[in-house]
């Protein structure tokens, strides 16, 4: 996660500068950057749909095969999106037998649930 944030910050010139005095808020700089990094990763309709399917599933966790079926997408595409969200600390991966179950990381649940409201 931290690696991802660092890479993301490097691409954005504005982030390096101190914010305008008017841009100070109760949110700390670190929190704001962390949140922005998550938003950047999920700012994609397919990823949002994956998160929505996980969030609204009965067990709050889902397998790749469920996602490919629901989305009509190929397995490599779904796996790629899950991999990116897993590396960004948004989605957890839990291998059970020969399958892996994906869920929303508890610390991100509030934010993701808000987005999907």
């Amino acid at each position: 996660m931290s690696e991802w944030v660092a890479r993301d910050s490097g691409q954005r010139g504005a982030v390096e500068q101190e914010p305008h005095p008017a841009l100070r808020s109760t949110l700390s700089r670190g929190q704001a950057e962390d949140t922005a990094a998550v938003l950047r990763v999920v700012s994609d309709p397919t990823r949002l749909q994956i998160l929505s399917l996980i969030h609204h599933s009965d067990e709050r966790r889902i397998r790749v095969v469920d996602l490919t079926r629901a989305l009509g997408l190929r397995q490599p595409t779904v796996s790629y999106h899950l991999k990116v969200m897993n590396e960004a600390g948004i989605v957890s991966r839990d291998p059970v037998g020969r399958e892996a179950w994906y869920a929303i990381v508890p610390q991100r649940l509030g934010m993701i649930a808000d987005l999907l409201r």
Binding site: S25, L27, A32, A37, L39, R40, S43
Partner: peptide
């Protein structure tokens, strides 16, 4: 997705 992309910026969040 467009909203999330627009808000993926620390300054905008603040």
């Amino acid at each position: 997705a467009a909203q999330a992309a627009a808000m993926a910026d620390p300054d905008r969040l603040r």
